[in-house]
Write a protein that binds this DNA or RNA. Structure first.
Lengths: 213, 213
DNA sequence: TAGTATACGGAAAGAGGATTCCGGTTCCCT
DNA sequence: AGGGAACCGGAATCCTCTTTCCGTATACTA
């Protein structure tokens, strides 16, 4: 007797629609981010809303399916870079790719920065972090990367770069990334956190925030 | 005959409510960002929704009033820093304040990054840019800041830092800021944009984005 | 090719938020 | 003190999503 999980293969038209839905979601989420609505998604895929909900339980699962794939792609890039003979150069190349992902795919950017709890993404995310950690350690051992960075810093910095998509000219995000990369080099690094204001002073800023009129 | 614009002073209760509304909005927008709803705002201010709409034409005007005040405060900080005898140190201090603003005030962060068209903010924004430009030029002349930064880069970098509010530990954004500051120093700067991937390669990343299944 | 489980489309239900409306109240001026 | 303009509260309206429901159509199996 077969397992209940494999009750029967999907019907051919259902399979075809699932594919079209994923392709449409991949495009539309990239263009418009999480604001892409289910009716829009359905229209772009050329199906009815009901069909969306037969293929995926809800919007989060659809989004999760697309985002997890993006993350797995990125993880593969990082893993490859981590084996390079020149880890610093490999690192810069891979974070250019990661930044490009943030910039070109609004939904990816929104999901990464919000640490959204999406189906399937947790695993893919930790895979990227592991790969980053290994890559970083090799670049540090080679003396090219500052010693006080850790894997978790990278997605954080990349999210920031992704935010610069719309800023100023189209190439603004490239300037942003270049500044960040220079900040990660071993030469000229000043120890983190290098805070010129005390905790008390920072807290004071908030209290001090002037209320208009 | 008096000008039609100064028809009459606001009634005392209206003036009092306007003040309470601004105070409430200042708090609630900071805590919850643009998601703060008009009914919530009204409740926090201790007034009815209708009163909100008598004091401000719509949500954008209320938001704009609060944001413009924040920006003016920041502009004043930058202008003061621009006159300092040690422009680099003054610069680091002022961007710590700016980053703190992003981190502590969700709405400020959301507005700055989206370059939202809000009533009153355009003028305040250009004032901060002018002040940044002067401060930057002095820090560059002193040999402390890399020569290829311009005023527009700073709000962009700060937005990125502000994004790190929720990331990891509470102090993650301070690490982010410290990396950015090091990236802005004159020593160890590599010329912008220092792009390791060609335009064609970057474009390929997008096309290459794998569609799941 | 007939029968049936699956799948489809799109209308309707449900939810949440911005904005409007209006009967009742409060301030201000004389 | 009294009249009226200005103001108040919050129920009601309008809109835009997400998600559900169900009558109809299609693909698989015998």
């Amino acid at each position: 007797m077969q397992a209940s999980t494999t009750s029967r293969p999907r019907r051919a038209d259902a399979e075809r629609n699932r594919t079209r839905i994923l392709a449409a979601a991949s495009e539309l989420f990239a263009e418009r981010g999480l604001d892409a609505s289910m009716p829009e998604l359905a229209e772009r895929a050329g199906v009815g809303v009901g069909t969306l909900y037969r293929a995926f339980p809800d919007k989060d699962h659809l989004l999760g399916a697309v985002m997890a794939e993006r993350l797995r792609w990125l993880a593969a890039q990082i893993e490859a870079a981590a084996e390079s003979a020149d880890p610093w150069t490999a690192f810069t190349e891979v974070i250019w790719k990661g930044a490009a992902l943030h910039v070109k795919d609004r939904a990816f950017h929104q999901c990464m920065r919000a640490a959204l709890e999406l189906p399937d993404v947790r695993e893919a995310r930790s895979r990227t972090l592991d790969a980053f950690q290994r890559l970083i350690e090799r670049a540090q051992a080679a003396g090219d990367m500052r010693g006080d960075v850790v894997a978790e810093d990278i997605p954080m910095l990349l999210s920031g770069v992704g935010l610069s998509r719309a800023a100023g000219t189209g190439a603004a995000w490239e300037r942003h990334l270049a500044v960040v990369i220079d900040g990660l080099r071993a030469d000229g690094a000043h120890p983190l956190p290098s805070r010129p204001l005390t905790r008390a002073q920072l807290d004071a800023i908030v209290r001090e925030l002037p209320c208009p009129r």
